[in-house]
Measured scan of single mutants.
Amino acid sequence: GATAVSEWTEYKTADGKTYYYNNRTEESTWEKPQELK
Rank of each mutant, 00 (worst) to 15 (best):
D15P: 00
E27D: 04
T3A: 12
G16Y: 01
Y19S: 02
E27N: 03
R24D: 08
E10F: 02
W8T: 00
K12V: 14
T18P: 05
E10K: 04
G16E: 03
T3M: 13
T25I: 01
T29S: 11
N23G: 06
T9W: 08
R24N: 10
K37Y: 14
E27I: 05
T25F: 01
N22L: 01
S28E: 10
N22D: 03
S28T: 15
A4P: 12
K37N: 14
E26C: 15
W30D: 09
Y21H: 07
P33T: 02
T3G: 14
E35R: 04
A4S: 12
E31A: 05
A14H: 10
E35K: 04
Y20I: 00
Y19R: 05
W8S: 01
E7I: 07
T29Y: 07
E10D: 02
Q34F: 12
Y21T: 04
E7V: 07
E31W: 05
V5K: 14
T18E: 08
T29E: 03
Y20G: 00
T25E: 02
K37G: 14
W8I: 02
K12M: 11
Y19H: 04
K37H: 15
T9V: 15
T9N: 08
A14K: 12
T18V: 11
K17D: 09
G1K: 13
V5S: 12
P33Y: 02
T18N: 06
A2F: 11
K12I: 12
Y11T: 06
N23Q: 13
T29D: 02
R24Q: 11
E35C: 15
P33D: 02
E7L: 05
R24K: 10
K37L: 15
E27S: 04
S6R: 09
K17W: 05
R24Y: 14
W8H: 00
W30H: 07
W30A: 07
T9G: 08
D15L: 04
G1M: 14
Y20M: 00
L36Y: 10
G16R: 00
T18M: 04
G1A: 14
A2S: 13
K32G: 04
T3H: 13
A2D: 13
K37R: 13
Y20S: 00
E35A: 08
P33K: 01
N23V: 14
K32W: 04
K37Q: 15
S28I: 15
P33A: 01
T13D: 14
W30K: 05
Y20E: 02
S6E: 12
W8A: 01
W30I: 07
W30S: 08
K32M: 09
R24P: 03
N22G: 00
L36Q: 07
A14S: 11
Q34T: 12
E10Q: 06
Y20D: 01
A2I: 13
E10Y: 03
Y19V: 08
A14L: 09
L36K: 06
K37M: 15
N23K: 11
T25M: 03
S28G: 11
E27Y: 03
K32H: 04
Q34R: 06
W30Y: 11
S6I: 08
T9Y: 08
T3N: 13
Y11N: 05
E7T: 04
Y11D: 03
Q34E: 15
D15G: 06
Y19G: 06
T29V: 14
Q34D: 15
T13K: 03
T18S: 11
G1S: 13
E27K: 07
P33R: 00
E10A: 05
T3I: 14
T18K: 07
E7W: 06
D15K: 03
T18R: 05
V5L: 13
P33E: 03
E27H: 04
N22H: 02
R24E: 09
K37C: 15
P33F: 02
T18Q: 04
L36G: 08
E7S: 05
Y11A: 07
T29F: 06
S6G: 12
K37E: 14
K32N: 06
G1P: 13
S28M: 15
K37D: 15
E31N: 05
S6T: 11
T29L: 08
Y11S: 05
Y11I: 14
W8K: 01
W30E: 09
E10N: 00
Y20W: 15
K17Q: 09
Y21Q: 04
A4F: 06
T9A: 11
E35T: 05
T29N: 04
K17L: 10
E10G: 00
L36A: 09
T3W: 04
V5F: 13
A2Q: 13
Y19M: 09
E7G: 09
E7M: 05
Y19Q: 04
E31L: 07
T25K: 02
A2W: 05
A14E: 10
Y11M: 15
T9Q: 10
A14R: 08
G1E: 11
D15F: 04
E35H: 09
D15A: 07
A2M: 10
E7A: 07
T9D: 05
E27R: 03
S28N: 08
N22V: 01
T13G: 07
L36H: 09
W8N: 01
